[in-house]
Simulated scan of single mutants.
Amino acid sequence: MTRVFSFFLLVLLVFGCNKKDQSSIAVPTDGSFTIEKEKEAILNTLNNETKAAFQRNYQEWQAYWVHDEDITKVYIDISERSFSESIGWKEISQFVKTFFEEHPEPEPVPELLDKIDVRLYGNGAWVTYMQNDSIRGLKKETRLMEKVGGEWKIAGMQTTIYGFD
């Protein structure tokens, strides 16, 4: 019995060590991939999504999001003592549609981002930045990004609103 167990353990170890890392991606060697190019593409997605949201353009806004049941959107407003969480594309989409219906007038677009902190993980990225909003004050944003069809899209968002001093 011990020999059988040892044999199966050895087989498991051999096959387990030979398994390819599914999370790795092939990085082009033709110079088309650089961290700065990826960061710039992420920055464009974030700025365009923000502009679309503040201008109440749902069709454009939704194009910058991953549309599946695992994405999340969280707002923590310290100054208003409020919290909201939406999970999955259907819930996030409905939250935004409702918000746009209840607040149809466009808002001033915050100063567009030029500096973000990015950690790349293959086809994913963790992004953080601070932004001033003329209506809500200082905000800290965290975004989980995924590269889908060659385009960076938002797969998770957490906004903490600190308000004005």
Rank of each mutant, 00 (worst) to 15 (best):
R3D: 13
R3E: 14
F5W: 13
S6P: 06
S6W: 10
F7T: 13
L9P: 01
V11K: 05
V11W: 02
L12Y: 06
C17D: 10
C17F: 15
K19H: 15
S24D: 08
P28R: 01
P28L: 05
G31C: 09
S32W: 12
I35E: 14
E38A: 09
E38V: 04
K39G: 06
K39Q: 04
A41F: 00
L46M: 00
N48K: 08
T50Q: 04
K51H: 05
A52Q: 09
N57P: 06
Y58W: 11
Y58H: 09
Y58K: 03
E60H: 14
Q62F: 04
Y64Q: 10
D68G: 02
E69I: 07
E69W: 03
D70S: 09
I71D: 00
I71M: 02
T72P: 00
Y75C: 01
Y75M: 12
I76E: 02
I76K: 03
I76W: 00
E80H: 05
S82G: 06
S82V: 12
S86K: 09
G88R: 00
W89T: 02
E91P: 00
I92H: 07
S93K: 13
S93V: 00
F95P: 03
K97R: 06
E101Y: 08
P104G: 03
E105R: 14
E105S: 05
V109H: 06
V109P: 06
E111H: 00
E111W: 02
L112F: 11
L113M: 10
L113A: 09
L113K: 07
D114T: 11
K115Q: 13
I116R: 14
R119L: 09
G122D: 15
G124Q: 13
Y129G: 12
Y129S: 15
M130E: 15
M130W: 12
M130K: 10
R136G: 07
L138P: 00
K139R: 10
K140V: 06
L144C: 05
L144H: 13
M145Q: 01
E146Y: 10
E146N: 06
E151G: 01
E151H: 11
K153R: 13
G156M: 01
I161N: 01
I161T: 08
